[in-house]
Write a protein that binds this DNA or RNA. Sequence first.
DNA 1: CCCGCGCATTACAGACCGGTAAGGAAGGCG
DNA 2: CGCCTTCCTTACCGGTCTGTAATGCGCGGG
Lengths: 224, 224
Amino acid sequence: MRILIVEDDAHIAAFVLKGLREAGYAVDHASDGEDGFSMALNEPYDAAVVDLMLPRRDGLSLIEGLRQRGVATPVLILSAKRSVDDRVRGLQAGGDDYLTKPFAFAELKARVAALLRRGTATAQPTRLAAGPLALDLLTREATRAGVPIELQPREFGLLEYLVRNAGRVVSKTEILNHLWDFDFDPQTNVVEVLVHRLRQKVDAGFEPALVQTVRGMGYVLRVP
Amino acid sequence: MRILIVEDDAHIAAFVLKGLREAGYAVDHASDGEDGFSMALNEPYDAAVVDLMLPRRDGLSLIEGLRQRGVATPVLILSAKRSVDDRVRGLQAGGDDYLTKPFAFAELKARVAALLRRGTATAQPTRLAAGPLALDLLTREATRAGVPIELQPREFGLLEYLVRNAGRVVSKTEILNHLWDFDFDPQTNVVEVLVHRLRQKVDAGFEPALVQTVRGMGYVLRVP
DNA sequence: CCCGCGCATTACAGACCGGTAAGGAAGGCG
DNA sequence: CGCCTTCCTTACCGGTCTGTAATGCGCGGG
């Protein structure tokens, strides 16, 4: 769990950093709004604690900028401004919670935990995509360039595995280990047959062929 | 957007209801903890506002119960208890936010909006639960009281449907419409056979039986 | 250029899934 | 108490899925 703290007051920052680290989180610190913004933009934080009054770029603008760019990291606003208007503004800007200074560390910790819980509870992606391919893991439907493709369970499993490892060569042994529970029957050509069946459905009538053979190595899903 | 208010104080409830309705939400109201619990369990609310001191079942227990059953609806706790300990407890129980009375309605609205924003940005739930049953929609695995249950695709589909409608009687026609694409062959006993197969796996060797018959009506998943 | 290995392709067969049908139990009503 | 309706249970069977095996093709090295 990675958390970003954006706070210019050195005392508060140190206090929060120490406490959250002791709680087992990996915590980074930015001491102005501009740094905080680029850090949040470039690293996949699971949550952020952001002060409002910051040098170089204020907290609200920072949050708005992140939201505009599609960064959904949950943000806890930490501010000395106590008025209802300020709180409402903070939440409207895209904050997920608002805590006023002074605060009890126990409460900060609990609120951060609540944000993390919510953020990760639903984090597993339910749809996968690679190039023209799209998989819906819930309905087990697959499409290429929008065209539905009918896949059997095993075929879907293989395609999912290839999509998850798109661009990387996966060996037949890896496929065997992943799709069949054990490492099972080493002398059989199930994988080759399965790949063939998948190609019939995924690459037939499309350009270019996505499922490619790497002789002596395995297979790759090569996305344009 | 559907919101549930669980609040026993009639004045506060009316005030919040009115305000949120004017803000464009569909709002339901429960005036004690037990009602609130079953409503939250059986209807797909997008958020809930829950008081802590409630008749019949207190708010913390309500929230814990929901979380235990896999209901992830974001909850804003609304309470007169202001202490840090109370707030921490509320969040630890599974609350997503904590607002103390008295409060400004503008802030409540902004916090509810923040919860909704976060709740809907994240995808559809990937796990379902009802009583001792838990379903993983991604892996299509099911467990009862932690024990894995092997289900065929059709059986899983039926159980999912029952879990989503736990506590409500679903007719055979509904099941037919939902599991088979069309309204299909009206004179066949597929549903009965399927129910039987599901029971063999879900209720065999467990107490009590969850899948119950309502003669002339259909079936219910009755959770303890 | 030819041979061998790796992979592709095809055919086949067993297992499994799921729908049909028929007979039996159980509940409800007169 | 008996009949009728509703549902349960079981057996069967056709289709689909998936692994096995045999054959064919092509790349790459010697």
